[in-house]
């Protein structure tokens, strides 16, 4: 059995006195697509942000591809990573945000090639060629020179996915990627994500799109109040939930 892509071992996270993650343990294997569901405030997004160290874990251990996130462990003692090492660690984890967070002063293509040229110091022509391919893959070959303000929400989110893919990540994190979209634009983003899942990308998706989860996900985790309540295949969690809290949540959203 190979190392899991993400392995969380009793992870805790508090903001001040408020404990958002209480003892999260789970594993995501390479090539697996996992959907995280749960009511708002349950800690799904915080957990996702801990995986690429946008938030610091307070207790427990979090590993990506076998490497401890955010710290170095020497003789059983944790040392905070230097900012540059933490940045390096993040560079092969892609993240897609609910509010897209595209760089508004850059065109779609410039958004996609920014990180490869700045972080990986890839030659601009090479990065541009690859950036164009990526934008074609997400169906935006005619929008490369557009600024984000000239794109619809669905188009912006597809650029954001291309931007994350440009760093050739081994893991993609999606934080409610379709929640800020008008209903008719959700499909185009989910289609891109489905295609991506088929290429074997490891993905963790925080979502409320149960249809998408059933079609694409290999596993599903239901979180509530900072804990993992139920884990299983999407069908088992959605169709025959064991826990009362899962049942009550699903009865509200399905």
């Amino acid at each position: 059995m190979s190392t899991p892509m993400v392995h969380a071992d009793r992870v805790r996270k508090s903001f001040g006195t408020h404990e958002v993650l209480k003892d999260i343990s789970l594993s995501v294997n390479k090539g697996e697509v996992m959907c995280l569901i749960g009511p708002s405030g349950s800690g799904k997004s915080t957990f996702l942000r801990c995986i690429n160290h946008l938030e610091e874990v307070n207790a427990g251990r979090l590993y990506v591809d076998g490497v401890l996130v955010g710290y170095r462990e020497v003789n059983n003692k944790l040392h905070e990573l230097k900012a540059s090492d933490a940045a390096h660690q993040r560079s092969d984890i892609g993240m897609v945000f609910q509010k897209f967070n595209l760089f508004p002063h850059l065109t779609a293509l410039e958004n996609v090639i920014a990180a490869p040229t700045i972080v990986k110091k890839i030659d601009k022509d090479v990065a541009t060629k690859k950036g164009k391919e990526l934008l074609e893959r997400v169906g935006l070959s005619s929008k490369m020179e557009h600024y984000p303000a000239h794109l619809s929400g669905g188009q912006q989110q597809r650029v954001a996915i291309a931007r994350a893919l440009a760093m050739e990540p081994k893991l993609m994190l999606f934080d409610e990627p379709t929640s800020a979209l008008d209903p008719e634009l959700v499909g185009e983003v989910l289609d891109v994500m489905k295609t991506l899942a088929k290429t074997g990308m490891t993905m963790i998706v925080v979502t409320h799109e149960m249809g998408f989860a059933r079609e694409v996900a290999d596993s599903m985790v239901f979180m509530d109040d900072g804990r993992v309540i139920e884990t299983g295949t999407p069908d088992s969690v959605l169709l025959s939930p064991q826990n009362e809290r899962t049942k009550s949540f699903l009865s509200k959203v399905l």
Partner: peptide
């Protein structure tokens, strides 16, 4: 704030 976060998530350092 999302701008700094997005840049961070792409592996950019503070100065970049």
């Amino acid at each position: 704030e999302g701008q700094e976060e997005a840049a961070k998530a792409l592996g950019m350092k503070w100065w970049a």
